[in-house]
Computed example of a mutant assay.
Amino acid sequence: MSEQTFVDISHGRIAVSDVNGSKTPLLMLHCNSGCKEMFLFQTQALTGTRRLVSLDLPGHGASSDAIDPRRTYCFGGYAEAVAEVLTKLEIDKVAILGHSLGGHIALDLTARLGNVSGVMIFGTPPIPPGPEGAQLGFLPHPEMAYTGNPTLTDEQIEGVVTMALGPGAERDLFYTSAVRRTDGRARQFMVEAVMAGTQLDQRELVATSSVPLAIVNGADDPVINLDYIDSLRYRDLWTRRPLRLANAGHGPHWQQHHIFNEMLQSFLNSLD
């Protein structure tokens, strides 16, 4: 990956990886309690094809904790922070890849910005605001029970990594450290904001937005309601229906990265 740089914005100091390339830049947004390095396989596969930008959200990875946590640690707050980073990097047109929380942020950015060429999300149910959205989009699962906990046990930390990247990464010390580093308020305040209904209506957004959208989920994702996602109306979905990638859970970009990267490249080529 490229050398890490830092961008100062109103939400805090943001760590950024920026790999030079032609064509429309691709911005990659990681999951809750994750970090930009979770897109290692995508960066390796796409380097040389286009500019690649990944960042650590406020309160994650090498970025600082949020200056004003209540302002930042929600879908809209993260989207504001990412928009500021794009401005600092002088990116005037961008495609976005979003994983789980990163997908929710990507959807918010499609409504917030006028320069998004297309979005691919995975592990992200487009939900309406409030408890209804959480009930529709997510499945009851042990990992979901502590998604919003400010502190996690060692066992729960391993569970987060396993859910995000698959069982093969559960003992990876780097990603375990990334989850442990995450500002616990980022989990707590984000879930509280979702339940309070502060975000935009993402279900309505995907039904009305003209921004091209690709959805590729793991067929064995244990925490999102795939049938709910399939049931939604989409104005500009890349394929006839959301795709399900076999032998993958919440992290198909890691568990089945070769196939996932082919799908990503094909989607990006369709945008170009």
Rank of each mutant, 00 (worst) to 15 (best):
T198R: 09
L109K: 03
Q202P: 09
K88W: 03
P167K: 14
A45Y: 00
P125A: 02
G133M: 11
L232A: 03
H60V: 01
R235A: 08
A106F: 02
F189G: 04
A66P: 01
I105K: 00
L173N: 05
T182H: 13
F189K: 03
G77H: 08
L55D: 01
T147F: 15
R240H: 14
L139H: 11
S17M: 10
M28W: 08
L109W: 09
G166E: 06
R70V: 14
L237C: 07
V206K: 05
A214H: 11
G77W: 04
L205P: 03
F174E: 06
A246S: 15
Y234G: 15
V53W: 05
F174M: 07
E155Y: 07
R181W: 03
T147D: 14
L136H: 14
T24P: 02
N115R: 06
A15Y: 05
A214Q: 14
G166I: 08
K23M: 05
H250W: 04
L107W: 04
R50G: 02
L109D: 08
D183S: 12
T182P: 00
N225I: 10
S231G: 15
G148H: 04
R240Y: 01
F260Q: 13
L232G: 01
T24F: 09
L40A: 15
F260P: 05
I127E: 07
L205M: 06
E132R: 14
P222K: 14
R181V: 04
G148R: 07
P140C: 05
L152D: 02
I127D: 00
T239V: 06
M38E: 06
S177N: 15
I229G: 12
G34S: 13
P150H: 02
I157Q: 04
D8E: 12
S210Q: 13
L136W: 10
P125N: 06
D221V: 10
A45H: 06
F39S: 05
D201E: 09
W238Y: 14
Y146P: 06
I67Y: 12
I127W: 10
A106Y: 02
A219V: 11
G123C: 09
G48C: 11
S270C: 14
G159M: 07
G61P: 03
L86Q: 03
I127T: 04
E158A: 14
L232M: 02
P126W: 01
Y73K: 05
D220R: 14
A66H: 01
V116Y: 02
L232D: 00
N261G: 12
K23Q: 15
R244P: 00
Q255S: 10
